[in-house]
Computed example of a mutant assay.
Amino acid sequence: MKSMIVTLILSATLALVSCARPSEQLNLEMSEGESWKVVANVSNRLMPGDELQVLYVLKATDAKDFVIAPLDQVEVKFPTNPELNEIQTVRPDGFITLPFVGDIVVAGRSPKQVSGELTTRYGEYLNVPDVYVIVREYGSRVAEMNEAMVRNRGGQGRPIQVRPDGSASFPIIGDVRAGGQSLEDVRQEVRARYREVDPRMLVDLSLMQAAGAQTWVLGAVTNPGNYPVQGQISLPQALNMAGGIRSMSFPDAIFVVRRDGGVIRYRLLNANLSQPEVQTLMLSEQSIVYVATRTISDPGAMAEQLAQQVFFRSFASADGK
């Protein structure tokens, strides 16, 4: 998996070295620093390795608020005509089928509302059309959600990690694109998708822990990939972790992108490793080092695209999602 991701990044980066163009996805602004150029406005974007917490509660079941949902099990009781009593599971289309009256929509309505309609409709067939509707069990989707969660104070929760491809997998609703998105955007999408499953599901999402420190070393190095680090390291240390510059590669430049909190900085350096600025350059806990063998014509666009592909995984996965 790691080698496939590195290959995807390298393939995309090679196209950028000679003809990079600004990305429309991050919409980032660049300004001059002293020796670094600065790319800003990324502080709230999620990235692979971030750990999220999804918190789930079931909406209050007061009579005025409670509504029936598909896959709930409902009991229809006739006190004066018990032979008509029925226990049915609400179909995915929201209907149940009863003797005499046929199909009736119950999903999205309260038991009291359904009881009132049934009392009216059975008035054509029964002398005393008393009908009561009771929800015996929540739908299987709610039960599945309950099983998937761990009970916490105030509700039930579950940790969700953003995967290397930038997606996060949630109970029932499956994968949601998270890498490169703001926490609020992901929260709103998750809430909407759970509402489609069952409108009674109230879901919240929070960032529990940011991704650990790591440095990506790419391009003309012996072992391109990502490497866990402890605190700051120097550029030569990062190159050594990747086995050094590949022999006979004739590098043109070393391109460095680093993330400092909400700021992404980049710097283009001469490939001469003996130069003081190369020897003393320090990386942050989230950095990219790219050894280029071609001229980088648009460093700003290059930094932007590398941030997309490495920090946020905005490139499409193999299945096109």
Score class of each variant (00 low, 15 high):
3 S>I: 08
310 V>T: 07
115 S>I: 08
158 R>E: 10
256 V>F: 03
226 N>L: 07
185 D>V: 13
199 P>V: 14
271 A>F: 02
296 I>Y: 01
95 F>W: 12
221 V>T: 02
19 C>A: 13
315 F>E: 13
119 T>Q: 15
308 Q>H: 12
278 V>F: 03
280 T>L: 11
309 Q>L: 10
163 R>I: 07
16 L>S: 06
68 I>A: 02
202 L>Y: 04
43 S>V: 06
109 R>W: 09
135 V>P: 00
200 R>T: 07
218 L>R: 03
244 G>M: 09
19 C>M: 10
42 V>Y: 03
40 A>D: 15
91 R>W: 04
143 A>H: 08
20 A>M: 06
45 R>H: 15
293 T>Q: 05
264 I>P: 09
198 D>V: 12
221 V>N: 02
269 L>S: 07
222 T>A: 05
91 R>G: 05
226 N>T: 11
138 Y>I: 11
52 L>Y: 02
9 I>M: 05
116 G>W: 02
194 Y>S: 01
171 P>W: 04
230 Q>G: 14
274 S>H: 10
194 Y>Q: 00
51 E>R: 13
217 V>D: 11
93 D>P: 03
167 S>D: 14
118 L>N: 06
86 E>N: 13
94 G>S: 12
261 G>H: 09
224 P>R: 00
73 Q>H: 05
280 T>F: 12
145 M>D: 00
43 S>W: 07
131 V>G: 03
182 S>T: 15
69 A>M: 06
187 R>Y: 06
256 V>D: 02
304 E>Q: 11
282 M>N: 09
113 Q>Y: 09
20 A>Y: 03
219 G>F: 00
70 P>M: 04
243 G>E: 05
239 L>V: 07
115 S>W: 01
85 N>E: 08
116 G>S: 08
287 S>T: 10
71 L>E: 06
121 R>V: 08
238 A>S: 13
2 K>W: 12
253 A>F: 00
207 L>Y: 04
217 V>S: 11
94 G>W: 09
89 T>D: 09
114 V>F: 01
208 M>H: 11
25 Q>T: 13
214 Q>H: 15
292 A>M: 12
89 T>Y: 08
32 E>T: 10
306 L>H: 06
241 M>Y: 14
3 S>K: 07
211 A>T: 14
103 D>Y: 11
94 G>I: 15
69 A>V: 06
245 I>S: 01
255 F>L: 03
282 M>P: 04
137 E>M: 07
177 R>D: 14
306 L>A: 05
235 L>K: 00
80 T>G: 02
276 P>E: 11
64 K>G: 05
298 D>V: 04
221 V>K: 00
316 A>Q: 14
261 G>K: 13
103 D>T: 08
137 E>Y: 05
39 V>S: 11
256 V>G: 01
262 G>L: 09
201 M>F: 09
105 V>R: 15
31 S>R: 15
192 A>F: 11
160 I>E: 04
44 N>C: 06
54 V>R: 00
219 G>T: 01
13 T>Y: 07
196 E>V: 05
30 M>C: 03
120 T>L: 15
63 A>N: 08
167 S>A: 12
132 Y>K: 12
312 F>S: 00
194 Y>L: 01
88 Q>D: 10
84 L>V: 06
113 Q>D: 09
119 T>N: 10
73 Q>Y: 05
